[in-house]
């Protein structure tokens, strides 16, 4: 157990948190994240609009996965937590596909206040 000496008091830092997870190579992760950002900015100039949007959101999802797994240390968490987070994402997707037919059926004229 580690100890910090401060103002004549020794404060014991909890070991449970220390031993809970390791540390990935953070600098490497940052470089990958910044490279992905540069790629997402470039694809708009190179590919057609549809492909550009698909690639831009694919890189965004990749960046998000890198942050969650490495910076938030989700890869060190028990599997049950993956399921909990996946359930949240499923709820959001259910909302999207559940509402999609209603939203696309609205015409701009209907959207105007009377």
């Amino acid at each position: 157990m580690n100890t910090v000496i401060n103002n004549n008091e020794s404060v014991v830092f909890p070991d449970a948190e220390h031993e809970y997870h390791g540390h990935p190579h953070y600098t490497r992760i940052l470089i990958i994240l910044l490279s992905l950002l540069a790629c997402s900015l470039l694809v708009g100039y190179i590919f057609s609009p549809l492909w550009a949007i698909v690639l831009i959101f694919a890189t965004a999802a990749w960046k998000a996965a890198l942050v969650v797994r490495n910076f938030m240390h989700l890869k060190y968490e028990p599997f049950i937590l993956f399921i909990a987070i996946a359930a949240v994402l499923l709820i959001i997707m259910a909302f999207f596909f559940g509402v999609y037919p209603d939203i696309t059926a609205i015409t701009p004229e209907v959207a105007k206040p009377h």
Binding site: V11, F13, A16, E77, I85
Partner: peptide
Amino acid sequence: MSTKQQHLTLSENKIPEGRLGLWI
């Protein structure tokens, strides 16, 4: 010299409670 000890408790799923709260 006094010693303050801060214990971290683990949830049933072995996740420190602070982290579990944050995930929620």
